[in-house]
Design a protein around this nucleic acid. Structure first.
Lengths: 353, 353
DNA sequence: GAGCGTCATGTTTACGTAAACATGACTGCC
DNA sequence: GGCAGTCATGTTTACGTAAACATGACGCTC
């Protein structure tokens, strides 16, 4: 069969192996199968109204040529990309990576791919830059995992008409927000320690810019105040085990300190190490509670009592909320809170046990 | 000015807030600015040959209408998506998420976005399905982070003409592979323990399907054999701290066991816990070495001696290799190894110290 | 001052897909 | 046996962009 090869603008570039880089289009398949490209389209989309023999010819031609639909053309045609963008500062935090994983998995189940847009540091410029890039990206909606207050200032830069869901933020009055119920988790942790008989609870807080850290610290403070307990000055870490270690060293020096609530598990790990080095037994001398319930927490020495966050559920609800917007089911602003629960392990106990 | 509104197929769907979801095209901008859409295109792409006043008019029209380029159309035109796909089993492993983060960051710096394609479980079907989906995705190349042997069987399913780089695999004879030098890392770990005077070294291996686990175990065995030491039966875990804990309990029962090399830090954490519970001191009675050097490892009790992996470098080289392929600089198959180094902390010491 | 080059801008076209509309063949009914 | 209806398939067109080509207005040179 003689095929007329139209002149191609791209370099024809035959790979040594003999593979051609040229994309196969519906027209190519149609030519080989001896049908129109519209029929190929019908077969590709499983539309009715194609006779079996024709369908088989087309399918045969497709697999012979290795046809794959061109999603750019498809997106252009439909005005939809079937893609969700995720803007975040980094995957290094365990919570972020698990949330992203859940988003990816759930989005895939709904036929959406996800595009990751990392933002270097939490500077205004970077965030603005990400929004700009995002605007040009082929996405139908965006999940913002920004976790810092900067969102306020840069909110104006969110291009109109872009669907947005925000994770872990106080933007609930302007955008739909999905988040873990940080405050309730912190309350459970602090009340647990008070119930064990501790006079008050020390706190190793996360970085001041973090909204989650602030809410955990706020809830800690409120529970103590409501119970009429003294509120010790909080130590501040940066989420890392190392920063928790240094905070722990300071707290270990205070003989009154018998109960510590760390704003995440990794800082709690550092606290445990500091207490151990200073000869303060956990939980006999000091009780420690973390936050997150990462997979390793049950293997700390001792196994860590901590607040379980359901990252997977957060990711799932993000995707659901976004898809609702994309499908034109108007979702108002407001905050959707995912419940937390306290997991009691070996790092907490009654005072002086 | 009278604007003729062409009939739209999509629902016009005015959002209550007054925002219109309709995308603004170059033609819209051109109409408002009183120029042709080609001139708008020139301005948008910073092409020369547009007089300043015209450019300003166009820019003004752009910002008035909130114009954003349509990347689907752009991709269709160029035959390029400026997107790299990443196929992986999950982000739950710390190594994976850090590698992905590095890929995303480095790709962004090169003007590429990344699309995440999660594969549920390591079943043949799932992998094949991912390849199929991938084929339909708007990506210029793919990084495969599959880390299991399944790749062999499904390799045939990689659509021809798709650029691929594989992480952590033995596919080096068919595709470019970027990987950490697992074997060398394991060698350093085992030799370190032998140099401390331990008669031999026990091993807590990763899952049998994992290629990285196999290479670490292989190197461990070879070093022992070369040194003429007995090779204890390896314990097997699934990378989790919990599985390391159970392996550790079994090893703790063996009074001869004085040195343990765990295939990752999290299993090492579990081993530390088991040894602690069984009253075996680390490193006085037993030395422990991990693998990965995750951020927390320095805060374990005691701080963990471990093999440092440079995940960021792996991600960077993946992107570089892929871009080289995309830009038609032929990159042969072969393995690009990223060096590891042993980080000595407090969990290892001389025998009976 | 005629002719040519330069440069800003407009017009045409193609990228791959799929909806909308068009065509033609065959079936079944009276 | 002719006509309407059904159904498989073909043709046209639009999606938004940008390369290639076309046009027309200047200015400069000899």
């Amino acid at each position: 069969m003689i095929t007329i090869e139209p002149p191609r603008l791209r370099a024809a570039s035959d790979v040594p192996g003999g593979r051609r880089k040229q994309r196969v289009s519906m027209a190519d398949v149609a030519r080989l199968a001896g049908v129109s490209s519209q029929t190929v389209s019908r077969v590709a989309n499983g539309a009715a109204g194609v006779v079996d023999t024709t369908r088989e010819h087309v399918l045969a031609a497709m697999s012979e040529l290795g046809y794959r639909p061109n999603s750019a053309a498809r997106s252009l045609r439909y005005g939809r990309f079937n893609t969700i963008g995720v803007i975040l500062f980094g995957l290094s935090s365990i919570g972020n990576s698990r949330t992203v994983e859940a988003i990816a998995t759930h989005a895939a189940a709904e036929g959406y791919a996800i595009t990751l847009i990392p933002v270097g540091a939490a500077t205004q410029d970077n965030v603005m830059g990400a929004f700009t890039r995002m605007g040009e990206l082929a996405v139908d909606g965006v999940v913002l995992i920004i976790e810092v207050h900067l969102l306020d200032a840069s909110a104006v830069a969110i291009p109109p008409g872009v669907h947005v869901v925000v994770v872990d933020s106080d933007a609930g009055d302007r955008y739909p927000v999905v988040d873990t119920d940080q405050a309730d988790g912190a309350r459970q942790a602090v009340r647990h320690l008070l119930a064990l008989g501790h006079r008050t609870v020390w706190h190793v807080a996360g970085p001041a810019e973090s909204f989650a850290a602030e809410r955990r610290a706020g809830a800690w403070r409120r529970v103590l105040e409501e119970a009429g307990r003294p509120v010790p000055a909080p130590e501040r870490g940066d989420w890392s085990a190392d920063s928790g270690y240094h905070a722990g060293l300071r707290l270990a020096a205070d003989p009154d300190c018998t109960a510590i609530f760390a704003a995440n598990d990794q800082m709690a790990l550092g606290v445990l190490r500091a207490l151990h080095e200073r000869g303060r037994r956990v939980p006999a001398d000091v009780s420690v509670v973390g936050f997150d319930d990462i997979a390793d927490a049950g293997s700390y020495l001792p196994p860590l009592t901590t607040v379980h966050q359901d990252f997977a559920e957060v990711g799932r609800r993000c995707v659901d909320a976004l898809l609702r917007q994309i499908h034109d089911e108007p979702t108002g602003a407001g905050t959707d809170l995912v419940a937390t629960r306290l997991v009691i392990r070996g790092s907490t106990g009654p005072v002086g046990s």
